[in-house]
């Protein structure tokens, strides 16, 4: 599988990924820093007024115009982004095309590529059940290769434990970062998503990519079916036609609840069907973030 297909990258090349909030960074980049004056990027001239720092006085301008002008600079920072991949067994479900995990890997890899390309730092966190592994954010080109190889090696296993992933990220991400969560959110624990959204309270920027298979959305089964759980031993023999209406109501309520929880926590929420074009998913996401920044 080619994670970063040329077509997708070509359509995303004109897009500037900008963080919504001002973040601390060491390296200058495309992202605006709240600390003016530390960058070498000239911004504008301002007529001197008492109190201004004399070290910013533009002597060349004084020589030309015989007036004092203060030079002002717009300092740029680096963005730190961490891609949290839910690699539980339910993410391996596929009704024909890409599985949810595969889609998550493509989306996370593409975003990491874009970030590193504009010299931002991209990291990776993977959750399998209660255990988590991570790759710290870096902006080096070599790091991107490592990150992509790690993504390539992921396989679905274990249960979904969003609370454990949230705890892990809270411990590891000490600086303000963009956290992109790729998951189907099928966590039987009632507070999993809520714990994850609490990371927003720690000044992190959070985006949730909710991955859903088309069959999970439409429940297109007719014949009596023995449904097997992908994460545990649960199983159920049922006539799908008899419960279809009820299932769709339950799932609709879950999706609505997830969207509402994200909105209340000021978190970007993107419902991703695994059969829709991924470039359009990313374009929609980036366009929304750019719009929010303005």
């Amino acid at each position: 599988m080619q994670l970063l297909n040329a077509q997708t990258l070509a359509r995303l090349s004109g897009v500037k990924l900008r963080a919504r909030a001002v973040m601390e960074g060491v390296l200058s980049g495309l992202h605006k820093s709240p600390h003016q004056g530390q960058s070498v990027e000239f911004s504008e001239h301002k007529e001197y007024a008492p109190g201004d720092e004399l070290r910013h006085l533009d002597w060349k301008a004084f020589g030309k115009f015989d007036k004092f002008y203060i030079k002002r600079f717009e300092h740029e920072t680096n963005l730190r982004a961490v891609m949290l991949i839910d690699a539980s067994a339910s993410m391996g479900y596929s009704s024909g095309g890409l599985s949810k995990l595969e889609v998550a890997k493509v989306l996370a890899g593409t975003l990491a590529y874009l970030l590193v390309r504009q010299q931002d730092a991209a990291g990776l966190a993977v959750t399998h059940g209660s255990s988590c592994s991570d790759l710290p954010p870096r902006s080096a080109a070599g790091h991107l290769t490592t990150l992509l190889e790690t993504l390539e090696g992921l396989s679905p296993q274990g249960t979904t434990d969003l609370a454990a992933a949230a705890d892990h990220l809270a411990e590891k991400v000490t600086r303000r970062s963009l956290l992109c969560v790729f998951s189907d959110l099928f966590d039987d624990r009632p507070d999993g998503l809520r714990r994850l959204l609490q990371l927003r309270a720690r000044k992190n920027d959070l985006a949730v990519f909710h991955l859903v298979d088309p069959s999970e959305l439409s429940f297109p089964f007719d014949d009596p079916t023995l449904f097997l759980s992908m994460e545990d031993e649960r199983r159920l023999e049922v006539n799908p036609r008899e419960i279809k209406q009820s299932y769709l109501e339950e799932l609709g309520a879950f999706l609505a609840e997830s969207r509402k929880a994200c909105a209340e926590a000021d978190v970007d929420y993107e419902l991703v069907r695994t059969d829709e074009p991924l470039d359009s998913v990313l374009l929609r996401f980036l366009a929304r973030r750019q719009g929010r920044r303005r």
Partner: peptide
């Protein structure tokens, strides 16, 4: 019945 591993089995249940 045809066995079918399913991610959203919680909702089916």
């Amino acid at each position: 019945p045809r066995p079918h591993p399913f991610g959203a089995i919680s909702f089916v249940l």
